[in-house]
Design a protein around this nucleic acid. Structure first.
Length: 740
DNA sequence: GTAGGGTTAG
């Protein structure tokens, strides 16, 4: 070997950063072997070269030949394991390194802590923290940052220790002493408790006494003790505060950054932006948007999706669209922020359209994308799309995801298939309050009040505490089947047992229940005496429709007056009142109301129904004869009407409030949108297929009777979803038991 | 060698 090549090897070993390729690294390795100069030290350097090039396999082959690997070799492989997301192997290596008696230095801890974070192993992380304190390495900037990140990430988790324990007691704890280097303390598989029982109890008492979230407290403690802090340190604590809901503190830290001559960067802002959507006003968010543009970080994908989300949550979806359209690069989260934004703003068709665009743009939808877009299918009741998405979810193997499973339960029940919803619910391994509420609400909407109530009881038995939404669901269930006493019990238990405040929705459900049950005066007093800060228009309009069902015009006038006082443009209320005046022959009052509507430029929303046939949605508007199949629909309805009449059907024209003769009234009934949709469905599907129709307003009383007959004559299950519930017609009767 | 964004039930 020439002296010049020896010099070259020496130079490379001293400047390992010069090696940039696998080939060069292997050449060096080979030369060292050939010249018999592969010492422990030079081998470690080669290992670090391999790991820097992410050549884990090569590094490990060499590593295993070393009898007692030096610190450099250990930390190189630990870092590489962490880099390649092999967190548990990183931690095992750390344990082995400690067991071999090697003392870790400051640049191994960031990787170890990251692995603890990713493995969600707070216990081990805290032990490592103890070790760091013992070795006096808590002054290291990167180690401190990694510690803060770990506590911030694992902040919701149960901890046996508090950070004070780590600081105050860890150094003295025997298992951390350097002399005891062979201790198996760091072995993750070890079941030996690190603390004695009494210590654990003591620590838990300390934790119970503190009202602050444990994690954020630990983050702050580490932060305060760090002698040197950089932007990352500040960003980590800002994110920690933001994620713990401590928004004031997060924003205070951003301001303090400025006084420490550090300017907020893209990381800082993307942590802080979500605060402005739900907590502070959107104008503050706009200021930040301006700052982002001035700092020229508006191309950052993280900032982009934060902005899209912020504007969407502030009901400014047009601004979300603008931000999205200007993004130079879009990842799956940017897409999904806008998809979710559309759904949050009730723009379901746009959400589905964008989801499709996303798939065409070759961005694979992940679990979050599915849980964002499924509610759009639920709201639109587009079963075929929902089923397609379900298939996609199954192929993607994420059907166990709690968010997705709950969204699927909700989607199937809202699309009229409560059986499929229940099947998915029953197959879930664990249920949280969201999935329970979804299935309870599903049964409630399908008129299975008793089933919904017993599921609610089952939920409580399983130790899942009902929250405010769960109470909305169970009260809705009671309301749809007239369980008055049960509803009062639940309403009272909300505040008395669960310490939950009654909100508008709960009052509305009870008012609805009393109204449906015909207890109109009681309902009126209940609503008049409720104390809710929010507007009560929806509650009054619920009660108004009960007055209409129970034909109580006198009370209806009182209710309407209350309603118009808070909501002078409530279309439904005008229509209901007009109809009630008409039904009572009070044409003068009706005309007056009609004029008021006309002056305000209000127009009646037409009644429509939809049906999906062969994955295509067909819409029908009451009295509209433009559908290409209208001739066949009429033929069918005419034929079936003859049979219906033979079986005892008599048209109930009392609901037709136009001032026309009986014959004309019957014709109007026969042109109702739900009847057209049902007829179209029966003609265009095979015998026995379930018919699913969605209607935008309440189903008409006469159509309800007629569809019962039709279900019997045609031997079809017919499911009609109106604006408040599902009606399952089967063999001449309806699941609602005519209570609606 | 550390740090950030989107999701389910009314």
């Amino acid at each position: 070997m020439s002296s010049s090549s020896k010099t070259l090897i020496k130079t490379l070993i001293e400047n390992p950063a010069r090696i940039r390729s696998k080939y060069q690294a292997k050449q060096l390795h080979a030369q060292l072997i050939r010249t018999h100069s592969l010492s422990h030290t030079s081998a470690s350097i080669v290992i670090s070269i391999y790991t820097n090039l992410k050549l884990l396999h090569e590094a490990l082959l060499l590593f295993r030949t070393l009898e007692s690997p030096p610190v450099l070799a250990w930390k190189s492989v630990i870092r590489c394991f962490t880099d390649q997301s092999l967190f548990s192997r990183a931690l095992t290596s750390f344990v082995e390194m400690r067991a071999s008696g090697r003392c870790p230095d400051h640049n191994v801890f960031p990787s170890v802590l990251k692995s603890c974070t990713m493995m969600a192993d707070l216990r081990l992380g805290e032990s490592v923290h103890g070790c760091i304190v013992r070795l006096g390495m808590d002054c290291d900037l990167y180690t401190g940052n990694a510690l803060m990140n770990m506590y911030a990430k694992l902040l919701g988790m149960d901890s046996k220790f508090s950070v004070d324990k780590v600081f105050d007691e860890m150094p003295q704890r025997k298992s951390f002493s350097e002399e005891d280097g062979k201790s198996s303390h760091f072995d993750t598989s070890s079941v030996d408790p690190v603390m004695s029982c009494s210590e654990v109890i003591e620590a838990e008492t300390v934790i119970a006494a503190s009202n602050l979230p444990l994690g954020i407290d630990s983050v702050r403690k580490v932060f305060e003790l760090m002698p040197r802090k950089d932007v990352v340190s500040w960003n980590t604590i800002v994110a920690g505060y933001a994620q713990s809901g401590m928004y004031e503190d997060a924003l205070r830290m951003v301001r303090e950054m400025g006084s420490n001559e550090l300017s907020p960067d893209a990381f800082t802002l993307s942590s802080v932006l979500p605060i402005f959507s739900g907590y502070v006003d959107v104008n503050k968010g706009k200021e930040i948007h301006g700052y982002v543009i001035r700092k020229r970080i508006d191309a950052d994908v993280y900032i982009g999706s934060s902005l899209v989300d912020m504007y969407a949550k502030s009901a400014r979806i047009e601004d979300s669209e603008r931000v999205f359209s200007h993004l130079s690069r879009r990842d799956s989260i940017s897409w999904n922020s806008l998809v979710a934004g559309y759904v949050q703003n009730g723009r379901y068709n746009e959400a589905l359209k964008l989801f499709r665009e996303m798939v065409s743009a070759k961005v694979r939808p992940g679990p979050v994308a599915f849980s964002s877009v499924l509610p759009a299918c639920a709201h639109l009741a587009t079963l075929h799309l929902g089923k397609q998405l379900h298939g996609y979810v199954l192929r993607g193997g994420c059907s166990d995801n709690m968010f997705i499973a709950s969204a699927l339960v909700d989607m199937y029940s809202k699309c009229g298939n409560i059986k499929a919803a229940r099947k998915i619910f029953d197959r879930m391994n664990v249920h949280d309050e969201v999935s329970w509420t979804a299935i309870i609400m599903g049964h409630a909407l399908h008129g299975h009040g008793d089933e919904a109530v017993s599921l609610f009881e089952e939920m409580k038995l399983q130790g899942v505490r009902p929250n405010r939404v769960a109470f909305v669901a169970v009260l809705t269930a009671c309301s749809h089947v007239g369980l008055v006493d049960e509803a009062w019990g639940y309403f009272n238990s909300m505040s008395e047992v669960y310490g939950l405040e009654h909100e508008l929705e709960h009052y509305a459900a009870v008012a609805d229940l009393l109204g449906r049950a015909g207890k109109l005066e009681e309902a009126f007093d209940f609503v008049s005496n409720m104390r809710v800060v929010e507007p009560m228009g929806s509650v009054w309009s619920t009660l108004l429709s009960s007055c209409s069902v129970h034909k109580n015009l006198e009370l209806a006038e009182k209710v309407a007056e209350k309603l118009f006082a808070v909501d002078s443009e409530n279309m439904g209320a005008y229509v209901l009142m007009c109809n009630m005046y008409a039904a009572n022959g009070r044409w003068k009052e009706m005309a007056k109301l009609r004029l008021r509507m006309k002056k305000r430029g209000m127009r009646k929303k037409p009644a429509c129904s939809w049906i999906e046939v062969k994955s295509k949605t067909h819409g029908f508007v009451s009295g509209d004869r433009s559908h290409p199949s209208m001739e066949r629909i009429n033929e069918f309805l005419k034929a079936v009407l003859e049979q219906m009449e033979r079986e005892g059907y008599v048209a109930d024209t009392s609901g037709v409030l136009h001032d026309v003769d009986e014959e004309h009234k019957r014709e109007l009934l026969y042109g109702h949108s739900e009847r057209l949709a049902v007829a179209f469905g029966i003609i265009n599907t095979e015998a026995g297929t379930t018919i699913r129709v969605t209607k935008n307003i309440r189903i008409c009383r006469d159509c309800h009777v007629a569809i019962k007959f039709i279900s019997k004559i045609t031997e079809r299950e017919i499911i009609v979803r109106d604006n408040s519930r599902f009606h399952h017609f089967n063999n001449g009767s309806c699941s609602c038991g005519d209570y609606w």
